[in-house]
Design a protein around this nucleic acid. Sequence first.
DNA 1: CGTCTTTGACCGGCGC
DNA 2: GCGCCGGTCAAAGACG
Length: 510
Amino acid sequence: MGSLKMAQLRDLKDELDIVIPTIRNLDFLEMWRPFFQPYHLIIVQDGDPSNTIGVPEGFDYELYNRNDVNRILGPKASCISFKDSACRCFGFLVSKKKYIFTIDDDCFVAKEPSGKEINALEQHIRNLLTPSTPLFFNTLYDPFANGSDFVRGYPFSLREGLPTAISHGLWLNIPDYDALTQLVKPRERNTRYVDAVMTVPKGTLFPMCGMNLAFDRELIGPAMYFGLMGDGQPIGRYDDMWAGWCAKTGLPYIWHSKASNPFVNLKKEYKGIYWQEDIIPFFQSIALREECTSVQDCYIELANKVKERLGPIDPYFEKLGMPCNVLNFVYVPTRVFFTEMEHNQILFLALPKSSDSASPNLSSNPSNISQVFPRFHFDSAGLMKKEAKIYQHCGTSYGSVDKMKPGKKEGGKETKKHKYAFQTRSQVDILDDGYRWRKYGQKTVKNSKFPRSYYRCTHQGCIVKKQVQRLSKDEEIVVTTYEGIHSHPTDETSAENFDQILRHLQTYNA
DNA sequence: CGTCTTTGACCGGCGC
DNA sequence: GCGCCGGTCAAAGACG
Ligand SMILES: [Zn+2]
């Protein structure tokens, strides 16, 4: 069987484009040269169009900046979000190939535990060219992987599998945490290599990231850029979408070098943290009418339902209810994936075990933190309501924190009170979050067994504060409240991260 | 000596 | 106004 599988693994250099969103020189391609050079690159430049992006010699590429996108798409250009790597969607659109591989410019070649460099692209191709098995779980994972097969008892009628639409790769080093978890565990690094590929079972949602992703454009392309497709576009032939879209996750790994600023991420993600609670049940429950036989029908019906059911949550969804937007939907029989390409990142919902790969247990930080739950946020009045809900969800009580004045701090200083609180399960009070703090007070609080500690960031000119308090109700839990946004990076983490990159480069060049 | 913690004083908001 | 309460200040102490 193995030889057959290898024979299937043909060269896709005429059938696959590599899409790279970037804001900088693409020196990282140097490491990928042996794997990427035969392929055509589509580079989508985020940020200032007047910047010149350097591309190493010898690559075949086309490059688009924001001006190009505006020119090519005209009024529909607003569909492409340039706030983030979501601009990669434009690359998906302009490609003419059957397959897309997309990777971020801060990702390097990873190594297997044996030290062998991983050809991520080859693994993606293997994933895409071999069938998926979403209807019946194979306990030996991907039966089409080298050295694997179907387990005894796997129904023969299902062994043929279904076409694979998505290959979702993982990464080492900087873990894929949400902003809140990132805040609490800035130094954690993923070193766990799991040698497995598995099909996401039918009907489950999973958190998908565009950082190391390959897909079959003919199967699932429209979902990645649907809002951009005009009347003249060949969407008719996507009718076989009713067959479902299968996704595999696991190998290949890449090496992710950059830890983004958790406070910036928090600003981008925090709405999603709220919405998640309402969105997932919505998409799990939604069913489209049988009459919707084209992607377009489905999209429009879905857009209407979004507007109708999610509009009340936030005006954002009113806008997204329009057929042209950055919101993408992927329909799977009786289930819908909701993909929000902004901030890479998307949603959600995992097969029971996928948390294994998305948030592995990490070795470097021996503190006893286990998980992070959002507790409450302050920003706009609309979100305060939601706060109460999450807060209840956590099943813990927390005095009267919501006595925040709604931005009456005018007087020339905009100083929006950014206040983020969350709880962690930890034996120790002092969490190493990468910043340096000076304690400036401690108070006993009414009705609480434990005192509250007050800290200020020691960085010159930075006014960020935090409070730390252990709950008397559940002594294991520490509530941390951050206020303000750091005006600087965490010096340790950047130094450490730089060190790691350097070490990686050295071993790579050796 | 620099740096961080400890801890009572202080202060402003709020309910009575 | 008064007292309570949570947040902050700053002097004194701990630590290296
Ligand atoms: Zn700071």
